[in-house]
């Protein structure tokens, strides 16, 4: 009996060893995860031709490191620097504008739709919510070609509306707002009605402020999706001056590898906005991301 039960002292040291092992697993994992980005960041301080010749690798020879790529990116390098820099920041600006517009419009529309679906009892309510789920079950890639034709017919090619409108009622965003609102007390609505507030007034002045945390988490997810979106904008934007950053960077990936200075510096600089938003708001992000996962 006594042999089977470990003494408190060995148990404590066992726990310590296990704790070091468990934490160590995550340390090693995080090193692997950080590796491509760190290697990419280091490579952005080296001539692009090295990247073409050697691929991505950790190079301990720091003598060839320069700021040239970034000088080129900001238009103060030699050659076509000014032209390329102007092009790059035009894409950057397009992406920023598109992302901001997408986030604001999507969030507002999805909020009101979810509000209607959650706060009232009406005919078709169940059916409409079923349709929200149904839209999630059809991969976008299947709708892509007919939608592309439709958008062409509507004259929305090369227009931001062509990218924003089809995704405006994002099913997962509606779903998340609904999940969040279900936990809010509906008595608030009746109280506001007695005070003479209109139905629309209640949704904006009473419920919207309470839903702020949901807005925060959806804003981050939506911003990430929009900033990194590639396939659909690639079809809608034809004109180089309308390109978003992701499409623009993709055009730099030529088989000749003559643009890699700009590509690698531009890629690293292109992660910054989304990384900043993430680091500031990451607490909300995890709530938003996992909304659908717990209740299934």
């Amino acid at each position: 009996m006594a042999a089977n039960t470990a003494s408190p002292k060995t148990m404590e040291s066992n726990h310590k060893v296990a704790s070091v092992v468990a934490t160590g697993i995550f340390v090693i994992l995080c090193i692997f995860i950080a590796f491509p980005l760190v290697a990419g960041l280091l490579a952005s301080f080296r001539p692009g031709r090295e990247l073409v010749q050697n691929g991505l690798a950790i190079n301990w020879d720091f003598s060839t490191m320069t700021l040239d790529n970034y000088k080129y990116l900001f238009g103060v390098g030699g050659g076509n620097s000014k032209v390329d820099s102007a092009k790059y920041f035009m894409w950057y600006k397009n992406s920023l504008v598109l992302t901001i517009l997408t986030v604001i419009l999507t969030l507002l529309v999805c909020y009101f739709v979810a509000y209607g679906l959650t706060m009232y009892k009406f005919r078709l309510q169940g059916f409409l919510f079923f349709m929200v789920i149904a839209t999630m079950c059809v991969p976008f890639e299947i709708l892509m070609l007919p939608l592309y034709q439709e958008v062409t017919t509507l004259g929305l090619i090369d227009k931001m509306a062509g990218v924003i409108l089809p995704g405006l009622c994002g099913a997962s965003t509606i779903f998340f707002f609904r999940q969040y609102m279900q936990s809010l007390p509906k008595e608030l609505l009746d109280a506001a009605r007695i005070d003479g507030c209109t139905e629309y007034g209640i949704s904006v002045r009473i419920m919207m402020p309470i839903t702020k945390p949901a807005f925060a988490s959806m804003a981050i997810l939506c911003a990430m999706g929009s900033w990194n979106n590639m396939l659909w904008p690639l079809l809608v934007f034809r004109d180089t001056s309308k390109f978003t950053l992701q499409i623009g960077l993709n055009t730099l990936l030529t088989p000749y590898g003559n643009n890699y200075d700009l590509l690698i510096a531009g890629s690293m600089f292109g992660i910054i906005p989304i990384l900043l938003i993430y680091l500031i708001f990451q607490r909300y992000l995890i709530d938003g991301m996992t909304a659908g996962a717990v209740k299934g």
């Binding site: 980005l37 691929g55 890629s267």
Partner: peptide, 23 residues
């Protein structure tokens, strides 16, 4: 660890694809 492990999901396919192509 949670914060670090989420970071790759922030990179676009263009950027992560390029990094892996080079690796």
């Amino acid at each position: 660890w949670k914060v670090i492990m989420y970071i790759p999901a922030l990179t676009s396919v263009v950027i992560s694809g390029m990094l892996f192509r080079m690796m």
